[in-house]
């Protein structure tokens, strides 16, 4: 059996605020393969975002380990964590994804400006925008794009650095269910075509069902791993 791309073992995150300790993620272990599409579901406050943030190198675990492509990332110092995010992770956030005054294309090419892309970034950006149905909208400022279009730009941006992992935290929560499903479909297609490991947090059971596997969280615990409709 090949090494999994990501292995998470005994991962715990405890927040401290005003002397109160909140155990947001408790002793979570699982592993993921390249090309897999996972959904994380669970009630509000169950620790989904916290888990995703640790996977993405935005948050340091209190204990446990996250090994990505053979490298322990939970103990990286800040600068190395930024490097990890730049080279290995593609992010799609709920909001605050894009610069509204830049065009779709400029937003995507921002990844080149921060040194995350290879030499043919422009061609890559145009191809991604075309695949995501944004060819005509490429030179439109993001502030004039619809919510669905914006999230598609965000998908293009997340793939610009050719990351091993794509992480999305409720990418469709600002969209209606039809458009949301459309965006998730595109996310899956793009990531599968590139053999990316994709982890998406969602509240929506229907969207979660489009995944290969569904991780269920409850109160910080990983309470179940279900097969999605895409499995098999």
């Amino acid at each position: 059996m090949p090494e999994p791309l990501v292995s998470v073992t005994h991962l715990t995150k405890t927040y401290e605020s005003d002397g109160n300790e909140v155990q947001a993620v408790r002793d979570v272990s699982f592993s993921m393969e390249a090309g897999e599409f996972l959904a994380i579901v669970g009630p509000s406050g169950s620790g989904k975002t916290t888990l995703l943030a640790m996977l993405g190198g935005l948050l340091t675990p209190s204990s446990g380990s996250i090994i990505v492509a053979g490298r322990e990332i939970s103990t990286l110092p800040p600068r190395a964590r930024a490097g990890y995010r730049r080279t290995t992770v593609g992010f799609i956030f709920q909001q605050l994804n894009l610069f509204p005054y830049l065009t779709a294309r400029e937003n995507v090419l921002l990844m080149r400006a921060i040194g995350a892309c290879g030499p043919d970034a422009t061609r890559q950006a145009d191809q991604l925008l075309a695949e995501l149905g944004l060819k005509e909208r490429a030179n439109t400022q993001v502030s004039r794009l619809s919510g669905g279009e914006r999230q598609r730009v965000a998908i293009a941006r997340a793939l610009m650095n050719d990351p091993a992992i794509v992480l999305a935290d409720e990418p469709t929560s600002n969209l209606d269910s039809v458009r949301g499903a459309q965006v998730v479909r595109m996310l899956i297609d793009e990531c599968k075509a590139r053999n990316k490991l994709t982890v998406m947090v969602t509240h929506d059971r229907e969207m979660a069902d489009m995944a290969d596997r569904i991780l269920e969280m409850h109160d910080g615990h990983l309470t179940g791993v279900l097969a999605g409709s895409a499995a098999g």
């Binding site: 930024a82 490097g83 995010r85 730049r86 994804n97 990844m111 921060i114 040194g115 995350a116």
Partner: peptide, 10 residues
């Protein structure tokens, strides 16, 4: 914050 999240250096 967004720039730093996607890996931009300080």
């Amino acid at each position: 914050g967004m720039l730093k999240a996607v890996g931009a250096s300080n």
